[in-house]
Design a binder for these strands. Structure first.
Length: 348
DNA sequence: AATACGTGGGG
DNA sequence: TCCCCAAGTAT
């Protein structure tokens, strides 16, 4: 049954594989063509907790600008962070660059799962994905799609995340030794297009016959998940200043660790439950509080941000004047603040 | 082991 | 509107 599961899935993949910028087609794969490990690695890191739709443009811009790992390794940190701006989980970008430099120094990517696992930003999923897709090594590739598909095939009702080790065992039972890369990508495509979280399309599923949850009519209820804690409300203040003499913006680079680490932003208060903690503005001036506020939701809290603006020529105590600053380099929450403030500076 | 870490789209 | 979630990793 396991054997024919993989056969049925791969037969479907041969006809229905999605065309994606980092992929080569199953037909070309069969001719012995191999995808570029650099492109597979880059796409897998971008795709961590991120949708294909969101990744495509970023992937194309990165590979156009930095066509190989040596080019990326030589890039200045700020340029890579700016190119990543808006994609989220910015530790990925910092680790991406660290990883590129390790790999460029080594003269190429490690070709084993264990070797890949030592790289910054490469965890169990990504190591297995690169090993199977780029190096044709059988590996048990388990991501959210595989967990969902597997829980349904076996009608495994234990809730995530506790069920993760058991699901990995079950996924290993399904995984074939042949065509590991195609199989991994087939599971992704199945999970993304047929075996979806809501309203799975069981009637057109290529592995319909193997699916215990479908047989029981409970596919849409799996996998079960333990409820998540509610997100707390936090609030803060940001200060947006512009220098009339040259149009420079007051920008600080956030510390490498923590939220939005390594990204540019506007100086301001900490963000706390119950309101902005006491703080000093980044420079002495008359600050105007805007009527509108920024609302933004992070993974683990909601945020309301008050915006204060001024025009000034003073030397700041936080951040620095940046005459050539582009808002495209901002993380989304800061870009929202900029969107609100920028019209107030139309005459600067 | 549990928590921190972004964002945009869909129902 | 609000909640869920998408090719997870680091600590």
């Amino acid at each position: 049954m396991c054997e024919s599961f993989a056969e049925d899935l791969l037969a479907w993949y041969d006809r229905h594989a999605r065309e994606l910028p980092w992929r080569i087609s199953p037909a070309d794969h069969a001719k012995g063509l191999r995808p570029d490990p650099y492109r597979i690695w880059l796409s897998e890191v971008m795709l961590q907790q991120t949708t294909v739709a969101a990744v495509k443009d970023y992937f194309n811009r990165f590979t156009t600008r930095w066509p190989d790992v040596a080019a990326l390794a030589a890039a200045p940190d700020a340029e890579v962070m700016a190119e990543w701006a808006g994609l989220g989980y910015y530790a990925r970008a910092r680790n991406l660059l660290a990883c590129a430099r390790v790999v460029a120094d080594a003269g190429g990517f490690p070709q084993t799962e264990a070797g890949l696992l030592t790289l910054p930003g490469v965890g169990p999923y990504t190591a297995a994905a690169i090993a199977s897709i780029a190096f044709a090594t059988p590996a048990v590739v388990v991501d959210g799609n595989v967990e969902r598909v597997t829980s349904r095939i076996f009608a495994m009702g234990d809730p995530l995340p506790a069920a993760r080790p058991k699901l990995r065992e079950l996924a290993a039972q399904l995984s074939p030794q042949k065509r590991p890369g195609d199989y991994a990508q087939a599971m992704m495509d199945l999970g993304a297009t047929i075996c979806t979280p809501r309203n799975p399309a069981c009637t057109i599923c290529p592995v319909f016959a193997h699916c215990e949850a479908r047989r029981l009519g409970i596919a849409a209820d799996l996998p079960r998940k333990t409820p998540k804690a509610a997100k707390p409300e936090r609030a803060g203040v940001v200060y947006i200043a512009r220098r009339p003499s040259d149009g420079a913006w007051l920008i600080e680079t956030r510390p490498d660790k923590g939220l939005l680490g390594g990204m540019p932003g506007f100086p301001g208060s900490d963000w706390a439950v119950g309101g902005a903690p006491a703080h000093e503005p980044p420079l002495a001036a008359d600050w105007l509080t805007l009527n509108g506020e920024v609302r933004h939701t992070f993974t683990h809290f909601h945020l309301t941000l008050q915006i204060r603006i001024t025009r000034s020529e003073a030397e700041p105590q936080q951040g620095a004047w940046r005459p050539a600053f582009s808002p495209a380099a901002l993380p989304t929450v800061m870009r929202k603040a900029w969107d609100l403030a920028a019209p107030q500076f139309h005459d600067v």
